[in-house]
Amino acid sequence: MTDRHELAKIPKLELHLHLEGAAPPAFIRELAKRRHIDLSGLFDEQGQYRWQGFAGFLAAYEAACAALKTPQDYHDLTLIVLENAASHGVIYTETFLSPDFCGAGDIVAWRDFLAAIEAAAESAQSQSGIVMRAIVTCIRHNGPAQARKIAACAQETAGHFVTGFGMAGDETCFQPCEFSWSFDAAREAGLGLTVHAGEWAGPDAIRAALHDLRVSRIGHGVRAIEDRALVAHLAENGVVLETCPGSNVALGLYPRLRDHPVARLRDAGAKVTVSTDDPPFFRTDMTREYDGLAQSFGWGASDFAEIARTALDAAFTDAPTRAMLQKRLEEACPNQS
């Protein structure tokens, strides 16, 4: 199964998507122009995002966020992102939202931004059937004190739409234990927990995240492959890895997709899912991700059906939504359930 059109039609569940990181360059460029914000250095000659290395990517990401000022901006962005995801067969997406960018951590402002995003998600669901849930996300390099403010925002808005709490940002800053208060607060609010780990830091970072933050999912987590005992632990305990192969290759973590450990992790019994992370920054989408996996590892319909089931089981959502998504998967792939 290597035909791009057929791959696009496969129903997909994406658990690792940053909303601002999914903003099309043209959308950010137009907002910046309207507000007289000079972001000329952010784009290359083709109008795509320009960055170099992980630090450069983080800087480019935050520069793009400077153009996003109002709840209406986030409403419009959400509609565009979900429409694009649905065109690649995504039926469910969990999207990282950070109050750091939506109101600077102020709970009143956060509520306004969140309401706009949720309204757009409801519109997208009625138009294309895609379901969105939100993972409130603190930014690691902003420090533990700021993370507490973000956790408070998560606590105050936990519910049908806000279903998870996580942490992104520079993995080399601070230790997981310094954020335990924030994750404990989110856990008490009934939120699912995930954290970026094992991307730029090694296996010990994953172990620390599991021990100190007690998460059920790890964002990326691919460097677990360097520790056979850790992979066995992940498999035995059902820890789900939100792998983003295209992102890892674009950032230079692995030279080619065929060198990516996603297939080896899966073969070893670890639960893996597939996501795009920040698709326009990494020139990817869910169809490209699936095409790359098919080409590099020979994955076919049964493999992708298993990936979808793993994502559904790990999703931070309610039982009725899970049952509805399960039905959609069974209808689309009746022989793969």
Score class of each variant (00 low, 15 high):
Leu293Asp: 13
Ser302Val: 13
Gly219Lys: 04
Gln295Val: 12
Glu226Asn: 07
Glu289Leu: 11
Ile225Lys: 00
Asp291Ser: 14
Leu293His: 10
Asp267Ser: 04
Arg288Phe: 11
Arg256Ala: 05
Ala250Cys: 08
Ser302Trp: 12
Asp277Glu: 07
Tyr290Asn: 11
Trp299Glu: 15
Lys271Ala: 02
Asn237Gly: 06
Val272Thr: 09
Arg258Glu: 08
Arg264Met: 00
Ser275Trp: 03
Val222Pro: 01
Ala294Phe: 10
Glu226His: 10
Ile225Cys: 04
Ala268Pro: 01
Asp259Gly: 01
Asp227Lys: 05
Val249Tyr: 09
Asp267Phe: 00
Leu241Ser: 09
Leu251Glu: 11
Gly238Asn: 06
Asp285Arg: 03
Gly269Glu: 08
Glu236Pro: 10
Thr276Val: 11
Thr273Leu: 06
Val272Arg: 00
Leu253Ile: 06
Trp299Ile: 15
Pro245Ile: 12
Ala229His: 14
Leu265Lys: 00
Pro245Cys: 13
Ala301Phe: 06
Ser275Gln: 06
Ile307Met: 13
Phe281Gly: 01
Gly300Phe: 13
Ala263His: 03
Thr273Ile: 03
Val262Ile: 11
Arg258His: 00
Ile218Trp: 06
Arg266Phe: 02
Val239Thr: 14
Glu306Gln: 15
Ala301Leu: 15
Ala301Gly: 06
Gly252Phe: 12
Asp227Ala: 13
Arg258Gly: 01
Asp227Arg: 06
Gly221Lys: 01
Thr287Met: 14
Ile218Pro: 04
Phe297Glu: 14
Arg288Gln: 14
Val240Arg: 00
Arg288Ser: 07
Ala224Ile: 09
Gly238Arg: 07
Pro280His: 08
Val249Gly: 08
Asp285Thr: 04
Phe281Ser: 01
Arg283Asn: 13
Val222Ala: 03
His220Leu: 10
Ser302Asp: 15
Ala308Thr: 08
His233Val: 02
Gly300His: 14
Arg256Ser: 03
Asp227Gly: 12
Arg283Asp: 15
Gly238Tyr: 07
Ala308Phe: 01
Glu236Arg: 14
Arg256His: 05
Asp303Ser: 15
Asp303Gln: 15
Ala301Met: 15
Arg256Asp: 12
Gln295Tyr: 03
Thr243Trp: 03
Thr243Arg: 05
Trp299Ser: 13
Leu265Gln: 01
Phe297His: 09
Val239Arg: 06
